[in-house]
Design a protein around this nucleic acid. Structure first.
Length: 282
DNA sequence: CCAGACGCGTCTTATACGTT
DNA sequence: AACGTATAAGACGCGTCTGG
């Protein structure tokens, strides 16, 4: 078993196809097939269930994939330990849009200066989507909001550390709640942790949301613009409001604080991730 | 120590086979 | 017919062995 075989195995597992894995790795499909057969012969178990047009991981294959990825990460780490300036690697980071905008620019700049050979791939999304991507091994780590005490899904086997404390504020135009008209609360799509806070707040303060409708928006800028013109109210982190630098008079009421966690799969620790964690938690 | 012979592993190409 | 996997045959590169 060598690292090339592990790379081949991981590629087929990811693509679910020998042909696509072969194209990805720049090799002939038969070469990929041979590698897999050698691995299966050596291990004595089938790593894949061959279907008509798909290669699906067997139960043993799924177990082995985790180890294969760890071995490849470890190998990359070893190279980085020897030649930190010349080992190109990518750290896949997921983060909520607000965290990306308000919290990450400074630590990311510091990280890039200290580790120029490490590329950072950034994915923005709501917390639930980031958790799914983390579980599917599409991300190495993610920054997402979760109430203290709430647990992450068992399937993820997550390890998490608190990174930031966000103060969530209710933002609205002056006297917005005093008007008699139908009220609107701007929120992000389901899966956003702050939307859950907004819904809980509605439930508690507006009889389960009676008389208030939710308007789904795609960005904080959209949310802020609707709020500024008095079309709705919204709940957003104070750090994001600060970024907007509003020159309009809006009422701000602090509702609660909520931690943002740096989450990764249990046992995952690469040099790149360790360095990134240090910058984030500094 | 060096050069050639040899064996082994890995690769590609061509082709067969099964399924949709 | 198109797509995907498996197999066979031959080419190539590399390491080891051996004789000069």
């Amino acid at each position: 078993m060598d690292f090339l075989s592990l790379t081949v195995f991981c590629a087929v597992a990811r693509e679910q196809s020998v042909t696509r894995a072969a194209a990805l790795l720049g090799r002939a499909p038969s070469n990929i097939t041979t590698r897999l057969r050698q691995m299966e012969a050596e291990l004595g178990v089938p790593l894949f269930e061959r279907q008509t047009k798909r290669m699906l991981l067997s139960a043993q294959g799924r177990i082995y994939l985790e180890y294969a990825q760890r071995m490849l990460t470890l190998a990359e780490d070893a190279k980085m330990a020897i030649q930190p300036a010349h080992t190109a690697t990518t750290l896949r980071v997921g983060a909520m849009e607000c965290t990306l905008a308000s919290r990450l620019p400074v630590p990311l700049a510091r990280f890039k200066a200290a580790w120029p050979a490490i590329s950072v791939s950034l994915t923005a999304g709501p917390s639930a989507q980031l958790l799914r991507a983390l579980a599917a091994q599409e991300l190495d780590c993610a920054l997402l909001a979760q109430q203290p005490g709430a647990s992450f899904p068992n399937t993820l086997h997550a390890q998490e550390v608190p990174a930031f404390e966000e103060e969530l504020q209710l933002l609205c135009s002056s006297g917005y709640w005093a008007h008699g008209a139908q009220k609107v609360l701007a929120v992000f799509a389901p899966g956003c942790s702050y939307r859950a806070v907004a819904e809980a707040w509605l439930h508690e303060h507006h009889a389960g949301g009676e008389g208030v409708t939710l308007r789904q928006v795609a960005s904080y800028h959209e949310m802020f613009a609707y709020t500024a013109v008095g079309a709705c109210a919204c709940i957003m982190p104070a750090s994001v409001i600060t970024l907007m630098v509003p020159d309009v008079t809006l009422e701000r009421t602090t509702l609660c604080t909520m931690p943002t966690w740096l989450v990764s799969r249990s046992g995952f620790l690469s040099t790149a991730f360790a360095a990134f964690s240090r910058e984030i938690l500094a």
